[in-house]
Structures are given as structure tokens and as C-alpha cells.
Amino acid sequence: MTEELIIAGFGGQGVLSLGKILAYSGILQNQEVSWMPSYGPEMRGGTANVTVILSDERISSPYLKLFDTAIILNQQSMDKFESSIKPGGILIYDPNGITIHPKRKDIHIYQIDANKLSSEMGNKKVYNMVVMGGYLKVKPVVQLDNVVEGLKKSLPERYHNLIPLNVEAIQKGMDNLVTINEVSVLN
């Protein structure tokens, strides 16, 4: 198994930490992992993205042109990365603020309204965990109990009381993923 994933959105949406929790979860089930951020003059409101690779084998390039899955959380990232998904790959996006929806017919497309769902939960900070739920629903690359352990490793101890809320957010994401387009081959 090798999963080559890009997560892209606004700074402040939890893009980098979502990637980090996934990477930690991968380690806990003995996978090789890499996490390569687009570092730079990014800030809250600017764009941020991270390439995460989970694999059973030694990872070669941590930097990629094409991805198995893209999780896209704003329009700029949609414009940039829709064409970077391998045929038969997966695009998961938050429709909030998206004015030009994806057009490709050769990939699986799903929507996760994580903005609305996290608002309903009363804590917008779990936004990225709702997204995580949506992703794990279509690509269960890591097990939920490893994600919980991954959360423990990634979050400072003073926030560990928020882990049940995060798990609830993941569940909410899993339950609310909307299918937009499916193709016959799942890459």
C-alpha cells in the first residue's frame, strides 16, 4: 500500500496538523511516512498545503507532481491541484467558498461540508477532523484507534480532554460525506 496525498487550503484550517496526525497514525501501524509542507511566507488566511505519503515500503520522493488523493479546502487550491490527481484518484473538497466546482470525470469526487458540520458541533477548531472523517470513509488508510493515538502524540497534553470531541468530529465527517462523481476503478 502506498497513499500519496495532498491536503491544501487556507492557513488556519488545520491543514498541516491534519497531515501530521495522519502521519503519526501511519507510524503507529508500522507504515513509512513523510510529511512535506509548503513552507514559506504563509499565514492565517494565506494558502497552505502539505504532501503526506503513507507506505508499506521505503518512501522515495517526498515531493510529488501527481497524487492518489487530494483534499481541497479552498478555491485557490482547487485551481492548483484538480489537475494533479491521478486518473481514478480521489478528490475530496469542502464546497464552502468554492465557485468553480471540479470538472474532471475520470476521478472520484466527494464533498464534505466541514465548515457547516464543525459549526453545528459548536467548535470550529475540529474542522480538520471532520475532513479527516470524510477522508477515512473513502480511504481507510489508517485505523480509527491509531488516529486517536496519533492525536495524543500530536496534541499537547493540556488539550487531551478534547480528544473525544475530535473523535466525534471524525465520526461526523464519516457520516456526512456526499458523493458527487464515482468512476469504476478505485485507484
Binding site: 501530521k20 507510524i27 513509512e32 511516512v33 513523510s34 510529511w35
Partner: peptide, 10 residues
């Protein structure tokens, strides 16, 4: 370099 310095791996 910036890539090896900034990326996370196990």
C-alpha cells in the same frame, strides 16, 4: 536543504 530540514519523517 529546506526540503530535508522542513519535512517530517519517522
Amino acid at each position: 536543504d529546506g526540503l530535508i530540514g522542513q519535512m517530517m519523517e519517522k
